[in-house]
């Protein structure tokens, strides 16, 4: 799955995107994000608090309990601050 990161999440991880296979047993967006914490110190810092993160699966906003099935792109970012 393609992972894309924005704003403070992108900076903490040090990447704007990466490809990762969905780990065995991960069914939801939240499962995947919790697993990603173990991938580097930057991931651990950026993804520490699920309640302060927002997610989009194939460009549609979803919550952490959304199922990963059939998704191609998961975006992880802080709450939006446009306007």
């Amino acid at each position: 799955m393609k992972l894309v990161y924005f704003a403070s999440v992108r900076e903490a991880i040090g990447l704007s995107s990466e490809d990762r296979d969905i780990p065995y047993g991960a069914r939801t967006v939240g499962d995947f994000v919790v697993w990603l914490r173990g991938q580097s110190q930057g991931h651990a810092v950026a993804l520490d608090d699920l309640s302060r993160l927002r997610f989009a699966l194939d460009q549609n906003m979803v919550t952490a309990d959304a199922l990963l099935v059939d998704g191609e792109e998961l975006a992880i970012f802080p709450p939006v601050t446009g306007g």
Partner: peptide
């Protein structure tokens, strides 16, 4: 727009 659109300000 403020709550739904994917923009971030620095």
């Amino acid at each position: 727009l403020k709550t739904d659109a994917p923009f971030w300000k620095r």
